[in-house]
């Protein structure tokens, strides 16, 4: 079953890619989508300039956030951990909103770097508060509290600087609205982190068995932990720089995938990327089609599913 789920997930992903191109404020039949890629076609703008880059972006961001979640859950062996739950996403968001509010004319292409600094600070903050050997629940609760703190800082910034509110507001809940080729180009270099993460599949299997066994099997446990968390922070920051903090994706996707394909990272990491992409494409599709032409942010859709899931996990963890 485990190995068969990879092609099934791929098929679902393909179906959703087509669906995201077809449906929206205006529904287009499949034939018009193919034509929409030709310059001068009536649907060229809708398809090529609007829906296509956005769909690809949703796929990549979903995959990267899920991958970041799988890395974090893998090295700290904590099912409640993920960059969004631990406040890393909101840390990146706060840094980005701060940058946009105080330097409104600054170059937007610096956003990923700014978000990276924010998420690094958030990660260090958590480390400083919890230490290396804190319990599952303590880490998760501290992370959630920090995330709430960062979110309220974002609110505060928007209250004192109401002029820039529109930009920041779009950010807050995590949205793919208005994202296109420019953002896609911004994300491109960060895709290099994906092969780096896949390279770690084997040692990630071993560190999941506990540090003692991992070291005995030849893994440098503390180095692996540091490298994995750094890659996860990089993946998160680059996604947040583009869509804002999209909640719970990094938590739910790896968890579902583990149930689906098991815990071997050679299969888990690629599968979790597919599941993450599927979830965000679904969320964005729902966000665009529930009440057209009004669009809900995709982050609200993921939170509606993710928050109860998180609570369920929290109560299940002893």
């Amino acid at each position: 079953m485990a190995t068969r789920s990879l092609p099934i997930l791929l098929l679902i992903l393909l179906g959703l890619l087509v669906a995201n191109l077809m449906f929206g404020a205006v529904s287009l039949p499949f034939k018009h989508i193919i034509e929409g890629f030709q310059v001068g076609n009536a649907n060229y703008f809708t398809i090529h300039e609007y829906r296509f880059p956005r769909t690809i972006l949703a796929m990549l961001v979903g995959a990267m956030m899920a991958l970041a979640g799988a890395l974090v859950q893998g090295v700290i062996r904590n099912p409640l951990a993920s960059p969004d739950v631990l406040g890393v996403s909101h840390g990146a968001g706060l840094a980005a909103v701060f940058y946009m509010t105080f330097f409104p004319s600054a170059d937007i292409s610096w956003l990923p770097a700014v978000a990276l600094i924010g998420s690094l600070i958030a990660a260090l903050m958590l480390w400083w508060l919890c230490g290396q050997h804190s319990s599952t629940i303590k880490l998760a609760i501290t992370g959630v509290a920090l995330a709430a703190l960062y979110a309220s800082c974002i609110d505060f910034l928007m209250l004192v600087k109401p002029l820039e509110i529109n930009n920041a507001l779009l950010w807050l809940t995590g949205s793919l609205w208005g994202r296109g080729w420019n953002q896609l180009a911004m994300l491109l270099p960060w895709l290099l982190l994906i092969p780096c993460a896949l390279w770690l599949a084997k040692p990630l299997n071993l560190i999941y068995l506990g540090d003692d066994s991992a070291i005995s099997l030849g893994v440098k446990a503390s180095t692996l932990r540091l490298v994995s968390l750094a890659i996860a922070v990089g993946l998160t920051a680059s996604c947040v720089a583009i869509c804002g903090p999209i909640g719970f994706l990094g938590l739910v996707a790896p968890h579902l995938t583990r149930k689906l394909v098991g815990g071997r990272h050679q299969l888990l990491l690629p599968s979790t990327m597919l599941v993450g992409a599927i979830l965000l494409l679904l969320a964005d599709l729902a966000a665009r089609t529930i009440d057209p032409p009004i669009e809900l942010p995709a982050g609200i859709m993921t939170a509606i599913i993710g928050a109860p899931y998180f609570l369920w996990l929290l109560f299940r963890t002893k």
Binding site: R77, Y208, L209, G210, S213, R258, V261, G262, G263, L268
Partner: peptide, 9 residues
Amino acid sequence: TQPIPEGIK
């Protein structure tokens, strides 16, 4: 003592 790994055969 060992952790109980989830989803490992």
